[in-house]
Design a protein around this nucleic acid. Sequence first.
RNA 1: CGGGACGUGGCGCAGUCUGGUAGCGCACUCGGCUGGGGGCCGAGUGGUCGCCGGUUCAAAUCCGGCCGUCCCGACCA
Length: 477
Amino acid sequence: MVEAVEKLTKKSEDPSRWYLQLVRMAKLADYGPVRGTFAIRPYGFAIWERIQRDLDDRFKATGHQNAYFPLLIPESYLKKEAKHVEGFDPELAWVTIGGREELEERLAIRPTSESIICDFYRNWIQSYRDLPLLINQWCNVLRWEKVTRPFLRTSEFLWQEGHTVHATPEEAREEALRMQRVYSDCFHEMLAIPVLTGMKSPSERFAGAIETYTCEGLMGDGRALQAATSHDLGQNFARAFDITFLDENQERVHPYQTSWGFSTRTIGGLILVHGDDRGLKLPPKLAPTQAVIVPIWRGKNKAEVRREAEALYAELQIAGLRMEVDLDEEHSPGWKFNEHELRGVPVRIEIGPKDIEKGQAVLVRRDTAEKEFVPREGLPERLRTLLAEIQENMLVQAREFRDENTRRAESYGEFKEIIEEKRGFVLAPWDGTEETEQKIKEETKATIRLLPDDVREEGKDLVSGKPGATAVFARAY
RNA sequence: CGGGACGUGGCGCAGUCUGGUAGCGCACUCGGCUGGGGGCCGAGUGGUCGCCGGUUCAAAUCCGGCCGUCCCGACCA
């Protein structure tokens, strides 16, 4: 242990400092000159690309196509849906000059694309035969945020936004719920984040939606993170943007719409859920590098060890595993161990003179730090099953943490105590009024994260004493 | 956007109070020895001290404005 090397702050000691340090040390992102702007570095971007691919496949499998819409939105477009402008107005950035000339109408840099997309959709949709229209766009958006943190809240961020149009309210609702499920599946299967799913309370709804469905994750510090949302827009935007079509009965009617989004914020969630004192911890399905080979050589047998390491690398890569071999000659094995743990590589494979002699390799898993000696012949199979075990274990661990930190409050006093001292999700009946929701928020800083779709037990609201159904509260990011 | 702290090579900091030669550790480059949990020795590279302006013979240092970062509150994916 050498004290001169920059040590990662312990997660429990100062979670905020730990997070910022980890982002920088693992080379995930770097600060830009304008508030809230960041470069996503190659390793961070590789993670995003893997999420993108997974989600994109799921979108395609559910019938969606990708398209691209303009970055600049005329002010008049944004103003068409009253609640929508109201919601986004405080965080818009405007372009007012083009080629040295003051513009007649200022242009907003998209904070989200409903308004501009609806303008296109008005022309694209004429008949019920044009429906459903199922389009997704991968892009960047900009919101002038006051407080920013890499990934979790940045001014500019990358995301996908799906925008669909349907003939009936039932279809739109189904679509919104379907995409919530797509997100939830991605969180569980790919990211090993056991999100809760449910509806937002009216006050937490997306600006302009009639219903917002959400996926909420619980972070390592007991705070909740809204990870992805899917909105049933009803006819609000269709009316505002005058989108109509002729239905089977030859009547001109407004269609029903949805929109749904998933952003680079999730990378922040990934860090907060799985990261530990050693650094990042990536689920194998997501990890750009699933296993890294660290050769351990001594002066005399360097060539031989290198050859073996390269051979093993080739073999595993051909077996379809995402591999890396660390042939750096400057750093010691110990240095490399720490480095790859910081980066969150799920498995480390050590191969040295002793292993070559015994015809084996050493496998060390990132999630539990367990070490095992595996014969060379069976290595690809063993690595494959080990990666699957790690994937599973990470989800189990995260779920256990979530369950241990999900509590039912029987009284308002208990509610306050849990939020203050333990954090986590708190289940309590809510009478459905904004007054109690607001009061709880003011007094405890906890907000309704969602109204769960599985547990909907009736009870008495802790504040008002009126009858209500279960809501999930938490302090959120 | 309020309250507080801060901004000096890539990172962590000293120097600022009391104006006068920019310094340390790590990282980086080169050479050599090393290598199973952040190695050792030697020689080097790199900074208009966040930006703009003011005071002064002289500004990292004093004054003003702006920008950015971090923490705590109000708003948000």
